[in-house]
Amino acid sequence: MTATAKPVEDLPIENENDILIPAAFRDVIGYHLRVAQEASFQAFNATLEKTDLKPGWYSILTILSEYEGLTPSELSRVCGRDRSTLTSTLKGLSIRGLIERRENPDDQRSYSVRLTDEGRNMYARLHAFAEEHDRRLDSIVGEDKDALIAILARIVGALGKG
């Protein structure tokens, strides 16, 4: 422990959720976005615990159910994930038989990704869990939902990669 660090038992208990939030982060939007995202992912994952489903698959399968034939680069932009981390997920989905790669006839280095029938079935299963999870989030956010979504969209618009 450094000279300025406080023992855990000396932390003020204003709000039970704030106990371990360092003072430097209490007003930091990015920190709260990340913690909220993690809490949401953990709750969604708990719902899927007894299944063979993975929460990270949902966004990819959803996007591919609406936009068939995206390249990995396009998919990366739409789902907001780095291309390098997306590649391993796509490989796992392909091994699982949930997606298929199709070479671009005009460019052998390029390919697109599509859902298989099994992928569509998996998407339907995940969608049912996601709808329930979203109802939970709606009840937490309440009438502030439209404002929250607008603020988050503003952040993405200002900071997101285009």
Results as ranks from 00 to 15, higher is better:
residue 66 E to Q: 11
residue 54 K to G: 03
residue 59 S to C: 03
residue 106 D to Q: 03
residue 65 S to K: 04
residue 88 S to F: 02
residue 35 V to N: 03
residue 131 E to S: 09
residue 117 D to C: 00
residue 140 I to C: 12
residue 154 R to S: 14
residue 118 E to M: 03
residue 89 T to N: 03
residue 68 E to R: 07
residue 61 L to M: 05
residue 22 P to G: 14
residue 19 I to W: 00
residue 28 V to F: 13
residue 134 D to T: 14
residue 110 S to M: 10
residue 102 R to Q: 10
residue 157 G to P: 00
residue 55 P to M: 12
residue 55 P to G: 13
residue 121 N to W: 02
residue 141 V to W: 08
residue 31 Y to T: 02
residue 105 P to D: 07
residue 28 V to W: 08
residue 113 V to H: 06
residue 74 E to S: 05
residue 103 E to Q: 11
residue 110 S to P: 01
residue 18 D to N: 12
residue 156 V to N: 11
residue 151 I to T: 12
residue 94 S to L: 04
residue 70 L to W: 01
residue 117 D to H: 13
residue 73 S to L: 10
residue 111 Y to C: 05
residue 21 I to R: 06
residue 107 D to W: 00
residue 29 I to E: 08
residue 128 A to Q: 10
residue 41 F to D: 09
residue 154 R to I: 11
residue 133 H to W: 04
residue 127 H to K: 08
residue 27 D to L: 10
residue 142 G to E: 15
residue 134 D to Y: 04
residue 128 A to R: 12
residue 54 K to W: 07
residue 128 A to S: 11
residue 130 A to G: 04
residue 87 T to G: 10
residue 154 R to M: 11
residue 108 Q to A: 13
residue 46 A to F: 12
residue 61 L to W: 02
residue 23 A to D: 14
residue 55 P to Q: 06
residue 58 Y to K: 07
residue 48 L to G: 13
residue 45 N to I: 06
residue 66 E to D: 10
residue 40 S to F: 05
residue 60 I to E: 01
residue 148 L to G: 07
